[in-house]
């Protein structure tokens, strides 16, 4: 990797100051993505600001029932947190569905939000990639697209966001708190990541000098779960994943949250499906129709055309499992 200066700030103020004065600087958390990208020559920061020593590694209960998760809480710690396991099972399950135990022990919540795509054309410097090099073109289009997006894509980029955790956070209406020298700002998770359009190198609404300090969860919704479908039983990125929360009263959908992973350049909150489901019958047919409506705008390639069908099947199965779970409880 390219040599860089290493800075370890003592507090948050010092950390944001360090990047404010150094345009080529990057925050370093668990390193599981950034170190890999630096070694591959894709990320080439002049300065690395190691934030792992900052006191942002605690989970607090919020008045009113929500949770405040420090940006440096390790993924494994969050997944195992008793409140997360009982009140936000979708989040715990999503984290445990991602990567490996070793990586979850290293990776931070803030870093997970900033994971970059696993598109092989992004990773291979020999390929053209608009995300890596704006204007270079996109070799993924016309290439291997098994891991690629069908929703929210553009002619510039069809890469997916690889995170599982973020899909759960999108369903949970999480809010991201960020700090810079200009102060603190709160961004709904669903607005944190942006679609590629013709600027796929811009992946979030985070400014270069802003540090993620926390993620806040509103009080827990209805029973929730995460379902991930991938090419092997574990330790693989999602082909399709579904984060869902569902409350059914007298056979009618009283509340529903639905977010998709593996199918879009950002964690995909399925608003259209939610709108169709809410107040309607909690039947498999209704689930399928809602899924179809959500997936209607899909733009597929030969290599990922199966994802619409897979997403519909996975949405339907996940909602069905939630009903069975609800009946059992």
């Amino acid at each position: 990797m390219r040599p860089f200066a290493y800075v370890k700030p003592a507090d948050v103020a010092e950390a944001v100051q360090a990047v404010a004065t150094e345009p080529g600087a990057k925050f370093l958390g668990g390193g599981t993505n950034l170190v890999d990208l630096m070694r591959e020559g894709i990320e080439r920061p002049h300065t690395v600001v190691d934030v792992t020593g900052l006191p942002l590694d605690e989970v607090h209960e919020l008045p009113g029932g929500g949770l405040r998760i420090g940006a440096l809480v390790r993924n494994s710690v969050l997944a195992a947190h008793p409140r997360v396991r009982t009140s936000y099972p979708v989040l715990s399950q999503a984290i445990l569905a991602g990567a490996s135990a070793q990586l979850r022990n290293m990776a931070t919540v803030g870093g997970n939000l900033l994971q970059r795509t696993r598109c092989p054309y992004f990773y291979d410097l020999a390929a053209a990639c608009n995300k890596r090099e704006p204007g270079a073109g996109c070799d993924a289009i016309g290439g291997f697209t098994r891991s690629h997006a069908i929703l929210g894509v553009s002619d510039s980029c069809i890469a997916t966001h690889p995170s599982d955790m973020c899909v759960a956070l999108a369903a949970l209406d999480a809010v991201v708190e960020v700090r810079s020298v200009r102060g603190t700002r709160r961004i709904p998770l669903v607005d944190f990541h942006v679609l590629p359009g013709d600027t796929p190198h811009v992946e979030t609404t985070l400014a270069a000098d802003e540090l993620i300090t926390a993620v806040e969860l509103p009080p827990s919704p209805a029973p929730s779960r995460y379902r991930k479908v991938r090419d092997r039983a574990s330790y693989a990125f999602a082909l399709v994943s579904v984060a869902a929360a569902l409350e059914v009263r007298d056979g009618t959908v009283a509340a529903v949250r639905l977010a998709l992973g593996g199918v879009a350049p950002k964690p995909w909150r399925a608003r259209e499906a939610e709108r169709l489901l809410l107040g309607g019958p909690a039947t498999e047919e209704a689930f399928r129709q809602a899924a179809d409506a959500e997936l209607a705008p899909a733009t597929a390639r030969p290599g990922n055309a199966f994802k619409s069908g897979l997403a519909r099947a996975t949405i339907t199965a996940t909602l069905r499992e939630l009903i069975i779970e609800g009946e059992a409880a």
Binding site: K8, T52, M106
Partner: peptide, 27 residues
């Protein structure tokens, strides 16, 4: 693999298993 994809580099840091290939020594 040197990219966190195989686990052959697993070591314990304060008793917690991590992939040493994705850890910078300074950290």
């Amino acid at each position: 693999c040197d990219q966190g994809a195989c686990g052959a580099c697993t070591v314990l840091a304060d008793g917690v298993r991590i992939n040493a290939c994705l850890a910078l020594a300074v950290q």
